[in-house]
């Protein structure tokens, strides 16, 4: 089994990669949250994520816009 692709969000192409992360991408946040991208506005600043884990339990199961700086990892 091949490893799922990890997106490189740092470095010269990081911002462009972030802008076009597709729906379904798995996200973890620097605050210990985890979820999946449900929409990408393409502004390079945010992705909309449906959370399965979140530092605020009330957010689990709902969507929140996540700032690029708060994303730890994005995987296919």
């Amino acid at each position: 089994m091949t490893e799922p692709k990890k997106y490189v969000l740092s470095g010269p192409h990081g911002a462009l990669t972030f802008m076009s992360l597709p729906e379904g991408t798995k996200i973890t946040t620097i605050y210990g949250g985890a979820g999946e991208i449900t929409a990408n506005p393409g502004d390079g600043a945010y992705v909309l994520v449906r959370f399965t884990e979140h530092q605020d339990p009330a957010v689990v199961g709902t969507e929140e816009f996540v700032f690029f700086n708060e994303v730890r990892e994005a995987t296919e």
């Binding site: 600043a45 945010y46 530092q55 929140e64 816009f65 700032f67 700086n69 708060e70």
Partner: peptide
């Protein structure tokens, strides 16, 4: 619905 560093 968001602000840079809102959770920091």
């Amino acid at each position: 619905v968001g602000a840079g560093f809102q959770h920091s």
